[in-house]
Design a protein around this nucleic acid. Structure first.
Lengths: 349, 349
DNA sequence: GACCGGATGGCAACCGGTTGACATCAACAC
DNA sequence: GTGTTGATGTCAACCGGTTGCCATCCGGTC
């Protein structure tokens, strides 16, 4: 399994000709393979990259030589003339947000299957940081996935000009994107709440720049009145546990009996703050989260939530990016209401 | 997504851009900058990379030209002659394990500060997948961080031969590593349990190949007897919620009154399974987790656990890797016992 | 005025692949 | 025998930077 030929000490001086910055040994190149197989480097390149261009015997011989020497192509060197790096970038807003766990995994798996490696960056919920992250990875990658970007349409369009781009949970004209259809899950949640006597619900909103936040609110605005329910938007300071906690005052002031939150973090934050102040969930207040992150089922009561297939979303984004799936053909993933114990009958008033 | 740029003949523009293989515009090169500034490409390279080698006036002029054209160095092209890619790799065992999210963030931040980008891969708790992941990213990176690797010492040593390597929570002779000192947190947890009358505790162990699992167990073996406490190892099938749930039978059979788990996932799994079968935590069973992941404080009762400074660990690994910190000088991060509600007085027997 | 040495910028050879164009050669038809 | 053709392998020119070495120019000194 050793990638280094046994006589390397004999040729130590020669191998040492190009020590890398870290003082490691230089890798085997196609020139080494070519010499070993008695052909020219270009022939090696073709034997390895363009099957069928030459006689099967020659091809075989070269492949054997390559295997014997433990040759591995140098992605950098390959990228230079071809312009293709076989690397894909994924930029998320916040690494520590559990929402992204599955998304990152889905993307990484799909990339791996396609023979690509992933570079990852974080935009920290800020447009500027996001822009920097994009600029940093851009020259390195064949394509880029932005999850719930905070940049405006114009900036995204400019990026798409120079780089293939796929957005997750964001729609911008002429840019490919994969989105999840929130209607199914949301209507199921509304039906569930109405069946339990909730006539007036609050929406704990997410970041103002978030397209998916606007989308979720929009669907609620359509669907709640259709069911004879009132719905109000309640601002949160940030899409985190703290943001949920801070919203309790406004929730109580709003006088709603049930809430749908922009995400599970907000929902959990609110849940715990409500309990801390002596409220009973779901007795006094029903709470529905969004995403079904790790942790949503750990709370007591378990958080009812609208599950988003995050892994599938990440995977789909990569498939669209590498052209395996036509963006128009890509069917939005479905959401699903997961009933746990944080929702129940509305308190008699 | 048309692959052809429409205006390729508008080369008279300020930034003349040629179409590339992917149909995107080619980036500005040092040749463009050189022409624009009226100097040779090598001079541009030096002006941008080796300050002080030339007159300040010339340097300024070239920098201005570069800025005006929006020049950005091509990392691939730079990597070829120098052998330095300014990219670092991080390989974790499982993306969806919340343990890693702070670690990834810490690493990514440290890398960003050092002007490096991160590539990320997952080894799925298997030595073979880990090996593949290493092979894939290796030619791409200047250095590699392996978090809790499952490969054996020999394989790791072989990797370190060709690539700078830093391990997290694993010690192998002659390979740099950053580890966390579990003794502080563990002894605090033991003291806490003993003070509550627990004389016999169980250790819910982690993966057999995990160095840090062995380490945690070893410290328990040393410290528990020293306090007059008995301690037994209780196997788990996997370091996940399911692994914790499955262990309940063995826990009951062992007749211990308190448990320390290899990680929080196992602890939470056990906690919930115990509750599901009617046990009271901490009334019948005290449980201590490990790591303090997101979610540990969400359970009811909140999980007492031994906090590991994950973010600092990831950051430290990168600092060691890029040589900012001498591995010998690096002081192990401290762990800390976080008392919540899953631990309490031992039941009278 | 001739000489000298440091500062400055350019030439050209890489790094490790890819690829269009071409040389070579055997087989085959005429 | 010659001409044609297709299959096969090589040559050499890139891709976009970096860097050792050399040419030039400048001011200053004897």
């Amino acid at each position: 399994m050793g990638p280094v030929s046994a006589d390397s000490d004999k040729a130590a001086k020669k191998t040492d000709k190009r020590p890398t910055a870290t003082g490691r040994r230089a890798a085997v190149t196609i020139y080494d393979v070519a010499r070993h197989a008695g052909v020219s480097p270009s022939t090696v390149s073709r034997a390895l990259g363009k099957p069928g261009r030459m006689s099967a015997r020659m091809e075989r011989r070269i492949q054997d030589a390559a295997a014997e020497l433990g040759y591995r192509v140098n992605p950098m060197a390959r990228a230079l003339p071809t312009g293709r790096t076989h690397t894909l970038g994924l930029i998320v807003t916040d690494f520590t947000n559990p929402v992204y766990f599955d998304l990152v995994r889905g993307a990484e798996r799909a990339a791996g299957v396609a023979g690509c490696t992933m570079v990852l960056a974080e935009s920290q919920e800020s447009g500027e940081a996001e822009s920097n992250a994009v600029e940093r990875v851009r020259p390195l990658v064949d394509g880029l996935v932005l999850a719930a970007p905070r940049l405006d349409d114009e900036a995204l369009t400019a990026i798409a000009q120079d780089t293939s781009l796929v957005l997750i949970n964001r729609v911008v004209p002429d840019i490919a994107s994969v989105v999840v259809d929130v209607r199914d899950g949301l209507t199921a949640a509304l039906d569930h709440l109405r069946a339990h006597g909730h006539g007036s619900i609050g929406y704990l909103s997410g970041p103002a720049r978030s397209w998916i936040n606007a989308r979720r609110w929009e669907v609620l605005l359509e669907e709640a009145p259709r069911r004879g329910m009132h719905v109000v938007e309640i601002q949160t300071s940030e899409p985190t546990l703290a943001g949920g906690r801070d919203a309790l005052r406004r929730v109580r002031a709003a006088g709603v009996s049930a809430l749908v939150a922009y995400n599970d973090l907000i929902a959990i934050g609110l849940l715990r703050e409500a309990q801390a102040t002596g409220l009973n969930v779901p007795g006094d207040l029903s709470i529905v989260g969004f995403d079904d992150i790790f942790g949503a089922e750990l709370t007591t009561p378990g958080l009812s939530t609208i599950r988003v297939p995050l892994g599938a979303l990440g995977e789909a984004a990569i498939h669209v990016l590498i052209g395996r799936v036509n963006p128009e053909e890509h069917e939005p993933a479905k959401t699903e209401f997961v009933r746990r114990q944080s929702t129940g009958p509305a308190a008699a008033r």
